[in-house]
Write a protein that binds this DNA or RNA. Structure first.
Lengths: 235, 235
DNA sequence: ACCTGAACACCGTTCAAGT
DNA sequence: ACCTGAACACCGTTCAAGT
């Protein structure tokens, strides 16, 4: 590679030519840092030290950028899943699938904007197809009929890829003062009771009322257990 | 205002004054007809026969329009859920919840753009809170502890509101010819096997390979069964 | 082959002006 | 009180022109 100046080191390095790969990695970096709404063609160009129109030599259009960004994240997921420690599915398909899904989830937690984008993409992504093919293979090795494996894909849905399926985004949930808290208890007595119950268990307060990881695993285990029950029943 | 022509009668009717309610109902109509991406302030104004800037007298900004649109759909869901025929939860909480969720799903199927929008909204919507409060109340009446009801909300996730959680959007899935089909069988042997198996059961072809309603109910029943098992075990 | 500047057709939104 | 036209700061994208 060619020599570079201090400025190059710090900001851009125009010497290494632009490429699709470099554009997409910059897009992921931009979304990680500033959020998905900041990912515009103009800001992306700025991120790689080029004018906006230059991007069109490496990607067809913005849609292609979003597809590419999804691709990068999915590749990251596939790598994480491949390296996840898990028993062979022939011995314990539930543990095998569980480990893979939790590995996928770890990746998504590093790109919080990704689930929304992945969910919006309706086009069949080859990487996603390959992933679901692996899941079906795992289930087959675990003794599933093709038919029940099909059911399983639908039950798991995007959870198979580690999607959190959260109820709400955390934050901005606390009532401002005791008055509004009381008002809330009036309007939503059941939720208020649930919250009070949780506080009783954990006197530190409502902190950790929803432990995302715990909830994710509880849901996952319930689903896997239901699937195992049907598999064993020969469904 | 000036006298009007026949065209006025047919398209707009400026006589009934603009209102927040009228703007939001027009927005839902526009999204239903042309898709969510067509819902711009300018086109929405056109839909109600007014200039874009007039909208700002009735809604704060576009974000408020989207919030309002969500509100309209949620109101529709709440009405459908309220009118759903269901046993009292004290007698059969599973049937009670199942009927309500399927009623909610019916509404969402009439506004196919709504799940994406509802999913993107992270702010706590009062109507959603009220709905989840009702679900917790139902579970309580069915014998749930607050703690397990809390778990239940997370397991159900947006499925409690009738979200389909589909794997892919239908369409554009068929391989173009036999060659690519064979190629697909090579790359994704498990999915190919699954598809072949389904074709065997239903010789009419791959039509209805994924019966959305069936899959939704299968998943829902599996989840409800897992919850009932935990409730009965006194979790 | 790769990059660019100017331009176009769209956005959401502000503001001063109309009635 | 309600609506409007012109304008601003942004989009994605096209196109002809540069090297």
């Amino acid at each position: 590679m060619s020599p570079r100046t201090d400025a190059d080191e710090l900001t851009e390095r125009p010497r290494v030519p632009l490429s699709r790969r470099r554009v997409l990695r910059a897009a992921v970096r931009l979304a990680d840092r500033d959020g998905l709404e900041s990912l515009t063609m103009r800001r992306l160009a700025q991120e790689v030290g080029v004018e906006a129109m230059s991007l069109y030599h490496h990607v067809a259009n913005k849609e292609a950028v979003l597809d590419g960004v999804v691709e990068v994240v999915l590749d990251e997921i596939m790598t994480a899943v491949r390296e996840a420690e898990a028993p062979p599915p022939e011995r314990d398909w539930r543990a095998a699938l569980r480990a893979r899904i939790l590995a996928a989830r770890d990746v998504l937690l590093r790109h919080r904007w990704a689930p929304g984008l992945l969910g919006a993409r309706t086009t069949m992504n080859p990487v996603v197809i390959a992933y679901y093919d692996q899941v079906v293979g795992l289930l087959r090795a675990g003794g599933f009929s093709f038919d029940l494996a099909h059911r399983a894909l639908h039950v798991l849905g995007s959870r198979a890829l580690g999607f959190a399926q959260e109820l709400f985004q955390p934050g901005e949930a606390q009532p401002a003062d005791a008055a509004t808290a009381e008002q809330m208890a009036d309007r939503f007595p059941n939720l208020a009771g649930m919250l009070a119950d949780a506080v009783h268990d954990d006197p530190d307060g409502t902190l950790g009322f929803c432990d995302d990881q715990f909830e994710f695993e509880f849901a996952l285990d319930l689903i896997l257990e239901g699937l195992e029950r049907r598999r064993a029943a020969g469904a």
